[in-house]
């Protein structure tokens, strides 16, 4: 609190104290870093968090410049409410879906960088040319307190604009409801109808395979294995599939099998020529036949496995 008071004092005079200078440089680094993070992070969640950091830094900047009320509003409304809204939507739309780095529009990235650079240079040059040295400071305006001063202005000079923003907020609230509300045009299908539909369409009439490999893994993100060792994609829910969050354990199983067979061969003392060709983990989803070029070997290896058991 005392720090804020001292900051206020500095703002009042119009010049900056050394404390404010130090504070500015720290905050500026945080703000620019957050902004760059927002721009460069691949995942939307990270972008949102970086933006929140920038907004917090800006809130402190506001307070340092004598706009205490705005600083608080920035924290409460922006960082608190709006950013939370962003996070909600990010979660709703797909938290993990990351932008691909590959630009699809030809020259867009280059042109954007060029424009941004040019704009930044122009702005900086414009500010530098403006010769802004005399700062009046807010000592007089904030004499009876920042909030009181703002209130006086809002309810006198800007009262009409204030009323209109009220109308704007109500409109926005109703608009958001209209946009996201979905009316059921017809009654939702019952389970009986869905079942009939499935039979009629003849797509996957029996239940989908359950996920997990019993006795070893039963998490929902682990696909079941088909008899040939490949994975059953249907056994994992579509959302996880889309995000690529499937843990494929089939190769692990095959590796274990190969290890077992080689141990058995060692124990039996077989020469390397008689050993089955399964030497390492197989690629997932490959047809089984491709890995067994000689069908003649098949009975022998089966026999060996049985013998090993």
């Amino acid at each position: 609190m005392s720090a804020a008071t001292s900051l206020n004092l500095a703002a009042v005079t119009g010049a900056t104290s050394t404390g404010e200078a130090v504070q500015f440089w720290v905050l500026a680094v945080i703000a620019v870093g957050g902004a760059l993070g927002t721009l460069l992070m691949r995942k939307a969640v990270h972008s949102a968090l970086c933006l929140a950091a920038t907004m917090l830094a800006l809130a402190v900047c506001y307070m340092a410049q004598g706009a205490v009320f705005l600083g608080v509003v920035q924290i409460v409304v922006y960082t608190g409410a709006i950013m939370m809204l962003f996070l909600f939507v990010v979660m709703l739309v797909g938290v993990t879906s990351a932008d691909s780095l590959k630009e699809q529009l030809k020259g867009q990235r280059f042109a954007a960088a060029l424009c941004g650079l040019g704009f930044g240079v122009l702005m900086v040059a414009g500010i530098a040319n403006a010769k802004l040295d005399s700062f009046a400071g807010l000592g007089e305006a904030n004499a009876e307190g920042n909030v009181q001063g703002l209130a006086r202005l809002i309810f006198t000079k800007y009262v009409w604009a204030f009323e209109v923003t009220g109308a704007l907020l109500i409109t926005a609230a109703i608009g958001a409801m209209v946009l996201t509300h979905r009316e059921h045009v017809k009654a939702p299908k019952t389970q009986r109808e869905l079942a009939a539909q499935r039979v009629a369409d003849n797509i996957q009439v029996p239940p989908l395979p359950a996920p997990g490999i019993y006795a070893r893994h039963n998490a929902v993100d682990i696909p079941a294995l088909l008899p040939d060792g490949s994975i059953a994609e249907d056994s994992v829910m579509a959302t996880l599939r889309e995000r690529g969050q499937i843990r494929d354990v089939s190769q692990e199983m095959l590796a274990r099998m190969a290890e077992l067979e080689s141990t058995t061969a060692d124990w039996l003392g077989r020469p390397p020529s008689e050993r089955p060709p399964v030497t390492g983990p197989r690629k997932a989803l490959e047809p089984v036949a491709a890995n067994h070029p000689a069908p003649a070997n098949r009975p022998a290896s089966d026999h060996d496995e049985e013998g090993a058991e």
Binding site: A112, C115, F119, L122, A125, G126, N129
Partner: peptide, 15 residues
Amino acid sequence: LSMFGGTLVLVATTL
């Protein structure tokens, strides 16, 4: 992008 480019031109002209 074209809007931003236009803004750029406007700012440059103003300055």
